[in-house]
């Protein structure tokens, strides 16, 4: 596949907000072809040969880091995983000190996860590498939204006109923000389902509809996207207890019955079974596409790496 224009004009992937629908479309199309190649067991190890990809994770993550590692290796990159210890995370100097270290190493692509919103954007100003945001604070997690869109597209076709319900802790969810931007840009109807204590202020201005009653919010939905409820939200008093949350905002078969009969169920993982999702739903092969999300994650990240590598070649 070739493109006549840069898909990620800034040379980084820092956020979904600001990406234009044709760019999103192009990324998804490219990822589709990688999904096919992956299933056929084919690799393209020449594409990123000689390129260095560093996974720079200031927060623990097995799933996302492994997914990027696999994607990079399938394209032939030299992949290095750097985990920065929790104790030094709070020292802001570390971030920019790290940036100068990475510059000295001639890193080509930097995949960053950080607990602070905006940290990858700050790094992108300081490093010569292409930066991919692998989740920053409560801001965005762009590759997650892209892989979610890819998964949805494979089941539902065009995203335009689909009803997607995102449920749970929206306030603290970077996955939710990226999905809201992406799905709205592609013409889906996005609904948010959460108690007011877990909804960001003025979130309705992002073009979504807000529901506090899960059954009403799920009515007629094509896609049900569950979010992880962090345990510390309960100690922070945002929800009174796990049992109350599960009763009113946990996805079980009964609540799911309000969605369309062929609605798919998604979760970015890792799941809190019995808190935001019932095992009977999570493990139901006719509804749950949670496993497929993981598979699409690798293909999606290969597409992103491919596009950024094209820009690297363009600038070389």
């Amino acid at each position: 596949m070739s493109f006549s224009y840069p898909i990620l004009p800034e040379g980084h992937l820092l956020a979904i907000e600001g990406l234009e629908p044709p760019h999103i479309q192009a990324l998804l199309d490219l990822a589709e072809s990688y999904a096919l190649l992956n299933r056929q067991g084919k690799t393209q190890r020449d594409l990123l040969r000689g390129r260095t990809l560093i996974n720079l994770f200031f927060e623990d993550s097995t799933r996302t880091r492994t997914s990027f590692e696999l994607a990079g290796k399938r394209l032939g990159a030299d992949v290095i995983n750097m985990s920065v210890s929790q104790s030094s995370v709070n020292k802001g100097e570390t971030l920019l000190d790290t940036a100068s270290t990475l510059n000295a190493m001639n890193t080509d692509i930097l995949v960053v996860r950080h607990a602070q919103s905006g940290a990858p954007a700050l790094l992108a100003q300081k490093v010569s590498a292409a930066v991919i945001n692998a989740g920053d604070g409560t801001h965005e997690h762009p590759t997650q939204a892209l892989l979610d869109a890819l998964t949805i597209r494979r089941h539902k076709g065009d995203l335009h006109g689909l009803i997607v319900a995102i449920c749970g802790d929206i306030t603290h969810s970077r996955v939710a923000r990226s999905n809201i931007h992406l799905l709205s840009a592609m013409g889906a109807e996005v609904r948010l389902i959460a108690p007011p204590t877990l909804l960001p202020t003025d979130v309705d201005r992002l073009g979504v509809t807000v529901f506090h009653d899960m059954r009403k919010g799920l009515a007629g939905a094509d896609v049900v996207m569950m979010l992880r409820l962090q345990k510390e939200r309960m100690s922070g008093g945002l929800v009174p207890s796990a049992r109350e949350f599960f009763r009113f905002y946990g996805l079980d078969q009964e609540k799911l019955s309000f969605a369309k009969p062929d609605a798919i169920v998604m979760h970015p993982g890792p799941m809190n079974r019995g808190i935001e999702i019932d095992s009977a739903v999570a493990d139901d092969p006719s509804r749950s596409v949670i496993g497929e999300q993981v598979e699409m994650g690798v293909a999606m990240r290969m597409a992103v790496l491919d596009v950024l590598a094209r820009d690297l070649r363009r600038n070389a």
């Binding site: 907000e17 919103s117 905006g118 920053d136 604070g137 409560t138 801001h139 965005e140 970077r174 923000r177 960001p200 202020t201 003025d202 979130v203 201005r205 992002l206």
Partner: peptide, 15 residues
């Protein structure tokens, strides 16, 4: 300031 911009940026707001 709590509101649309802070929500978009993922920053904790002050109402």
């Amino acid at each position: 300031t709590e509101g649309e911009l802070a929500s978009r940026l993922g920053l904790p707001g002050i109402p």
